[in-house]
Protein backbone atom coordinates (compact mmCIF):
# COMPACT_ATOMS: atom_id res chain seq x y z
CA UNK A 1 0.00 0.00 0.00
CA UNK A 2 2.65 2.47 1.07
CA UNK A 3 4.91 1.15 -1.61
CA UNK A 4 2.24 1.98 -4.16
CA UNK A 5 1.78 5.47 -2.76
CA UNK A 6 5.52 5.95 -2.78
CA UNK A 7 5.70 4.86 -6.40
CA UNK A 8 2.96 7.31 -7.31
CA UNK A 9 4.69 10.09 -5.40
CA UNK A 10 8.01 9.30 -7.02
CA UNK A 11 6.38 9.33 -10.44
CA UNK A 12 4.72 12.69 -9.81
CA UNK A 13 7.87 14.27 -8.42
CA UNK A 14 10.10 13.10 -11.26
CA UNK A 15 7.44 14.15 -13.76
CA UNK A 16 7.34 17.69 -12.46
CA UNK A 17 11.10 17.82 -12.12
CA UNK A 18 11.44 16.90 -15.77
CA UNK A 19 8.73 19.36 -16.73
CA UNK A 20 10.56 22.10 -14.84
CA UNK A 21 13.90 21.20 -16.36
CA UNK A 22 12.27 21.15 -19.77
CA UNK A 23 10.89 24.65 -19.38
CA UNK A 24 14.12 26.11 -18.06
CA UNK A 25 15.83 24.41 -20.97
CA UNK A 26 13.37 25.96 -23.44
CA UNK A 27 14.06 29.44 -22.07
CA UNK A 28 17.80 28.85 -22.34
CA UNK A 29 17.36 27.67 -25.91
CA UNK A 30 15.33 30.75 -26.78
CA UNK A 31 18.05 32.90 -25.27
CA UNK A 32 20.67 31.03 -27.29
CA UNK A 33 18.86 31.45 -30.61
CA UNK A 34 20.16 34.99 -30.94
CA UNK A 35 23.69 33.72 -31.44
CA UNK A 36 22.57 32.14 -34.72
CA UNK A 37 22.49 35.57 -36.30
CA UNK A 38 26.28 35.43 -36.19
CA UNK A 39 26.44 31.92 -37.63
CA UNK A 40 23.57 31.44 -40.08
CA UNK A 41 25.54 28.61 -41.66
CA UNK A 42 24.75 26.36 -38.70
CA UNK A 43 21.04 26.96 -39.21
CA UNK A 44 21.19 26.23 -42.94
CA UNK A 45 23.02 22.98 -42.25
CA UNK A 46 20.34 21.91 -39.80
CA UNK A 47 17.55 23.04 -42.10
CA UNK A 48 18.98 20.51 -44.51
CA UNK A 49 19.07 17.59 -42.11
CA UNK A 50 15.81 18.48 -40.36
CA UNK A 51 13.72 19.98 -43.17
CA UNK A 52 14.97 18.74 -46.51
CA UNK A 53 15.49 15.17 -45.39
CA UNK A 54 11.93 15.02 -44.05
CA UNK A 55 10.57 16.46 -47.28
CA UNK A 56 10.42 13.20 -49.24
CA UNK A 57 8.29 11.37 -46.71
CA UNK A 58 6.05 14.43 -46.30
CA UNK A 59 5.50 14.74 -50.04
CA UNK A 60 4.77 11.06 -50.54
CA UNK A 61 2.48 10.91 -47.51
CA UNK A 62 0.71 14.10 -48.57
CA UNK A 63 0.08 12.79 -52.05
CA UNK A 64 -1.48 9.55 -50.83
CA UNK A 65 -3.46 11.15 -48.01
CA UNK A 66 -4.95 13.57 -50.54
CA UNK A 67 -5.75 10.78 -52.98
CA UNK A 68 -7.38 8.59 -50.35
CA UNK A 69 -9.36 11.51 -48.97
CA UNK A 70 -10.67 12.32 -52.43
CA UNK A 71 -11.62 8.72 -53.10
CA UNK A 72 -13.39 8.23 -49.78
CA UNK A 73 -15.24 11.53 -49.85
CA UNK A 74 -16.32 10.77 -53.40
CA UNK A 75 -17.89 7.47 -52.35
CA UNK A 76 -19.64 9.12 -49.42
CA UNK A 77 -20.84 12.17 -51.32
CA UNK A 78 -21.85 10.59 -54.61
CA UNK A 79 -24.97 9.10 -53.01
CA UNK A 80 -26.21 12.62 -52.30
CA UNK A 81 -25.22 13.96 -55.67
CA UNK A 82 -22.80 16.20 -53.82
CA UNK A 83 -19.62 14.79 -55.30
CA UNK A 84 -18.72 18.28 -56.48
CA UNK A 85 -17.84 19.02 -52.87
CA UNK A 86 -14.91 16.63 -52.91
CA UNK A 87 -12.56 19.53 -53.53
CA UNK A 88 -13.70 21.60 -50.62
CA UNK A 89 -13.85 18.60 -48.32
CA UNK A 90 -10.29 17.57 -49.11
CA UNK A 91 -8.99 21.12 -49.01
CA UNK A 92 -10.56 21.93 -45.67
CA UNK A 93 -9.54 18.65 -44.02
CA UNK A 94 -5.98 19.07 -45.23
CA UNK A 95 -5.49 22.73 -44.50
CA UNK A 96 -7.20 22.77 -41.12
CA UNK A 97 -6.29 19.41 -39.61
CA UNK A 98 -4.48 16.75 -41.54
CA UNK A 99 -1.78 18.97 -42.99
CA UNK A 100 -0.43 20.29 -39.70
CA UNK A 101 -1.12 17.13 -37.68
CA UNK A 102 0.14 14.45 -40.06
CA UNK A 103 3.18 16.56 -40.91
CA UNK A 104 3.95 16.96 -37.21
CA UNK A 105 3.58 13.22 -36.60
CA UNK A 106 5.85 12.42 -39.55
CA UNK A 107 8.27 15.06 -38.34
CA UNK A 108 8.37 13.55 -34.85
CA UNK A 109 9.05 10.13 -36.30
CA UNK A 110 11.59 11.17 -38.91
CA UNK A 111 13.36 14.32 -37.75
CA UNK A 112 12.52 14.34 -34.03
CA UNK A 113 13.87 10.89 -33.30
CA UNK A 114 16.98 11.63 -35.34
CA UNK A 115 17.57 14.86 -33.42
CA UNK A 116 17.23 13.10 -30.07
CA UNK A 117 19.54 10.29 -31.11
CA UNK A 118 22.12 12.69 -32.51
CA UNK A 119 22.19 14.97 -29.48
CA UNK A 120 22.06 12.02 -27.09
CA UNK A 121 24.98 10.40 -28.84
CA UNK A 122 26.92 13.67 -28.71
CA UNK A 123 26.27 13.68 -24.99
CA UNK A 124 27.27 10.03 -24.60
CA UNK A 125 30.52 10.57 -26.48
CA UNK A 126 31.28 13.64 -24.31
CA UNK A 127 31.10 15.97 -27.31
CA UNK A 128 28.80 18.34 -25.43
CA UNK A 129 31.06 18.21 -22.38
CA UNK A 130 34.04 18.75 -24.62
CA UNK A 131 32.45 21.86 -26.12
CA UNK A 132 31.76 23.23 -22.68
CA UNK A 133 35.38 22.69 -21.73
CA UNK A 134 36.40 24.53 -24.89
CA UNK A 135 34.35 27.43 -23.54
CA UNK A 136 31.75 26.90 -26.24
CA UNK A 137 28.13 26.83 -25.18
CA UNK A 138 26.56 23.71 -26.71
CA UNK A 139 23.14 25.29 -26.34
CA UNK A 140 24.21 27.93 -28.83
CA UNK A 141 26.16 25.75 -31.20
CA UNK A 142 24.30 22.45 -31.09
CA UNK A 143 20.82 22.84 -29.62
CA UNK A 144 19.65 26.24 -30.84
CA UNK A 145 20.29 25.62 -34.57
CA UNK A 146 18.50 22.28 -34.44
CA UNK A 147 15.58 23.68 -32.51
CA UNK A 148 15.17 26.70 -34.74
CA UNK A 149 15.53 24.61 -37.89
CA UNK A 150 12.66 22.43 -36.65
CA UNK A 151 10.49 25.42 -35.82
CA UNK A 152 11.04 26.97 -39.25
CA UNK A 153 10.82 23.74 -41.24
CA UNK A 154 7.56 22.52 -39.78
CA UNK A 155 5.23 25.17 -41.27
CA UNK A 156 7.04 24.85 -44.59
CA UNK A 157 6.58 21.09 -44.57
CA UNK A 158 2.95 21.56 -43.52
CA UNK A 159 2.19 23.86 -46.44
CA UNK A 160 3.90 21.53 -48.89
CA UNK A 161 1.95 18.59 -47.47
CA UNK A 162 -1.36 20.44 -48.01
CA UNK A 163 -0.48 21.54 -51.53
CA UNK A 164 0.68 18.09 -52.59
CA UNK A 165 -2.37 16.52 -50.92
CA UNK A 166 -4.70 18.76 -52.88
CA UNK A 167 -2.87 17.95 -56.10
CA UNK A 168 -3.31 14.27 -55.28
CA UNK A 169 -7.00 14.81 -54.63
CA UNK A 170 -7.31 16.71 -57.90
CA UNK A 171 -5.71 13.83 -59.72
CA UNK A 172 -8.14 11.30 -58.26
CA UNK A 173 -11.28 13.44 -58.39
CA UNK A 174 -10.89 15.17 -61.72
CA UNK A 175 -8.67 12.91 -63.76
CA UNK A 176 -9.68 9.47 -62.47
CA UNK A 177 -13.28 10.00 -61.35
CA UNK A 178 -14.12 12.62 -63.95
CA UNK A 179 -15.51 15.35 -61.73
CA UNK A 180 -15.75 18.85 -63.09
CA UNK A 181 -12.43 20.59 -62.50
CA UNK A 182 -14.10 23.96 -62.07
CA UNK A 183 -16.39 22.85 -59.29
CA UNK A 184 -13.45 21.10 -57.66
CA UNK A 185 -11.63 24.42 -57.38
CA UNK A 186 -14.65 26.69 -57.09
CA UNK A 187 -16.16 24.86 -54.16
CA UNK A 188 -12.82 24.96 -52.40
CA UNK A 189 -12.31 28.62 -53.16
CA UNK A 190 -15.74 29.47 -51.92
CA UNK A 191 -15.35 27.74 -48.60
CA UNK A 192 -11.62 27.91 -47.80
CA UNK A 193 -10.71 31.23 -46.30
CA UNK A 194 -7.16 32.50 -46.58
CA UNK A 195 -7.02 33.91 -43.07
CA UNK A 196 -9.39 31.71 -41.16
CA UNK A 197 -8.26 28.40 -42.61
CA UNK A 198 -4.85 28.68 -44.23
CA UNK A 199 -3.21 31.09 -41.80
CA UNK A 200 -4.62 29.21 -38.84
CA UNK A 201 -3.33 25.97 -40.33
CA UNK A 202 0.13 27.48 -40.66
CA UNK A 203 -0.09 28.79 -37.10
CA UNK A 204 -0.93 25.28 -35.94
CA UNK A 205 2.06 23.93 -37.84
CA UNK A 206 4.26 26.53 -36.18
CA UNK A 207 3.04 25.59 -32.69
CA UNK A 208 3.59 21.91 -33.47
CA UNK A 209 7.05 22.78 -34.75
CA UNK A 210 7.95 24.43 -31.45
CA UNK A 211 6.57 21.52 -29.41
CA UNK A 212 8.04 18.69 -31.48
CA UNK A 213 11.49 20.31 -31.79
CA UNK A 214 11.51 21.23 -28.12
CA UNK A 215 10.71 17.69 -27.03
CA UNK A 216 13.25 16.24 -29.46
CA UNK A 217 16.20 18.41 -28.41
CA UNK A 218 15.31 18.24 -24.72
CA UNK A 219 15.07 14.45 -24.69
CA UNK A 220 18.45 14.27 -26.37
CA UNK A 221 20.05 16.80 -24.07
CA UNK A 222 18.50 15.30 -20.93
CA UNK A 223 18.95 11.63 -21.79
CA UNK A 224 20.91 9.15 -19.73
CA UNK A 225 24.03 8.75 -21.87
CA UNK A 226 23.93 4.97 -22.24
CA UNK A 227 22.66 2.89 -25.14
CA UNK A 228 19.57 2.01 -23.14
CA UNK A 229 18.93 5.57 -22.03
CA UNK A 230 19.36 6.79 -25.59
CA UNK A 231 16.89 4.25 -26.92
CA UNK A 232 14.35 5.22 -24.30
CA UNK A 233 14.84 8.91 -25.01
CA UNK A 234 14.28 8.37 -28.74
CA UNK A 235 11.10 6.42 -28.08
CA UNK A 236 9.91 9.08 -25.66
CA UNK A 237 10.50 11.77 -28.28
CA UNK A 238 8.21 10.06 -30.77
CA UNK A 239 5.53 9.11 -28.24
CA UNK A 240 5.50 12.38 -26.33
CA UNK A 241 5.58 14.65 -29.34
CA UNK A 242 2.84 12.65 -31.07
CA UNK A 243 0.62 12.84 -27.99
CA UNK A 244 1.42 16.52 -27.43
CA UNK A 245 0.62 17.30 -31.07
CA UNK A 246 -2.72 15.49 -30.98
CA UNK A 247 -3.70 17.09 -27.68
CA UNK A 248 -2.65 20.57 -28.77
CA UNK A 249 -4.48 20.08 -32.05
CA UNK A 250 -7.69 19.61 -30.10
CA UNK A 251 -7.03 22.70 -28.01
CA UNK A 252 -6.07 24.83 -31.01
CA UNK A 253 -9.02 23.63 -33.05
CA UNK A 254 -11.35 24.47 -30.20
CA UNK A 255 -9.90 27.99 -30.00
CA UNK A 256 -9.53 28.69 -33.73
CA UNK A 257 -12.63 27.18 -35.28
CA UNK A 258 -15.10 27.44 -32.43
CA UNK A 259 -17.23 30.10 -34.09
Amino acid sequence: MFALLQKLGHFIITFFQRLGRGHVFLLQVFASCGSLLVRPGLLVKQMYSVGVQTLIIVVVAGLFVGMVLALQSYYALVDFGAEDSVGVMVALSLVRELGPVVTALLFAGRAGSALTAEIGLMKATEQLSGMEMMAVNPLQRVIAPRFLAGVISMPMLGIIFCAVGIIGAYFVAVILLGLDYGSFWSQAQAKVDLYHDIYNGILKSFVFGVIASWIAVFEGYDCIPTSEGLGQATTRTVVHSSLAVLFLDFVLTAIMFSK
Binding site: T125, E126, Q127, S129, G130, M131, M133
Partner: peptide, 12 residues
Protein backbone atom coordinates in the same frame (compact mmCIF):
# COMPACT_ATOMS: atom_id res chain seq x y z
CA UNK B 1 42.22 25.14 -19.77
CA UNK B 2 42.61 22.27 -22.17
CA UNK B 3 40.90 19.01 -21.45
CA UNK B 4 41.39 15.66 -23.05
CA UNK B 5 38.42 13.38 -22.60
CA UNK B 6 38.72 9.66 -22.39
CA UNK B 7 36.91 9.18 -25.69
CA UNK B 8 38.59 12.17 -27.28
CA UNK B 9 35.19 13.89 -27.59
CA UNK B 10 35.90 14.95 -31.15
CA UNK B 11 33.00 16.51 -33.00
CA UNK B 12 31.99 13.68 -35.28
Amino acid sequence: MGMLFQSGALLT
